[in-house]
């Protein structure tokens, strides 16, 4: 059993490994010109440079702060809307069509207006990120609450539970998995969008490092940026995933008893 899990994990590493070897081979022999794709060693050296000079940390801090604020703003407002629509039918009837209309708009399409309204400073980035984070959160919360099995509600009606007790013992526990999926989607969306926002306009941040590096023809720095973004996004999702299994796993097993 354990062996099977390790084997499955290793299988996922085969293609990245092949790609890495091909990348190393093609770039070290300059079959692909280094100005178009720098070699892995160059990337590592550049990463170390940026890391040891503190440049990377400073810019990551800015990006993560933006993600944090945008994520909180988006997740909380998304949760509130989703909950309201899920619990009160009139709210759903009034707001769901508008929400469905709103969520068809790609967040990047808001950029011109957001810049017009908020300028190009921090508020623009935070609101932009929160727009993107808001949608999956509201959607998944609504879905979670709507998905509470009718039989459960039947049972609590028979037992004549108060509304708070219904919420605490039935609705929240059964909506939680969907809400936590919403959180993960929302965080990964926030991380994608911070890069987008910084590519448009920023003073600091990892996206901005890439814009400047591109204009200064530092292909290696751009690629380091891409890799750092990927690793950060991956790590953030993993952490949320771990938290989910830890708390929700517990919750689920309690629920089952």
């Amino acid at each position: 059993m354990k062996f099977q899990i390790i084997k499955n994990k290793l299988l996922g590493l085969i293609i990245p490994l092949i790609l890495y070897v091909a990348w190393d081979f093609l770039t070290s022999r300059e079959i692909i010109p280094p100005e178009l794709l720098p070699a892995p060693k160059v990337i590592f050296d550049t990463w170390w440079d940026l890391q040891s000079s503190g440049e990377l940390a400073l810019n990551m801090k800015m990006s993560l702060l933006r993600v944090g604020f945008g994520f909180l703003l988006g997740a909380i407002s998304g949760f509130l809307l989703g909950t309201a629509m899920g619990l009160w039918k009139p709210v759903e009837l009034y707001l769901n069509p508008l929400f469905n209309f709103f969520r068809q708009i790609p967040v990047v399409a808001w950029i011109p207006f957001l810049i017009l309204w908020l300028g190009i400073d921090e508020w623009f980035k935070i609101v932009f990120i929160s727009f993107g984070a808001f949608i999956p959160m509201a959607l998944k919360t609504l879905e979670g609450i709507k998905g509470v099995p009718a039989s459960y509600l039947e049972v609590v009606r028979v037992f004549e539970y108060g509304w708070f007790r219904v919420l605490r013992t039935v609705i929240v526990p059964s909506a939680l998995p969907s809400i936590s999926t919403g959180l993960r989607l929302c965080l990964s969306e926030a991380w994608m969008l911070v890069i987008g926002a910084e590519l448009v306009a920023a003073g600091e941040g990892i996206g901005n490092v890439m814009v400047i590096a591109r204009r200064l023809f530092q292909t290696d720095v751009v690629l380091v940026g891409v890799i750092v973004i990927a690793i950060t996004g991956f790590a953030m999702d993993k952490v949320l995933g771990l938290l989910e299994t830890r708390f929700l796993g517990l919750h689920r097993s309690q629920n089952a008893q």
């Binding site: 100005e35 200064l216 023809f217 292909t219 290696d220």
Partner: peptide, 12 residues
Amino acid sequence: LPVLAGRSGGLK
């Protein structure tokens, strides 16, 4: 600057 940056970045 762009000419020098390009060359420094490996542009031939």
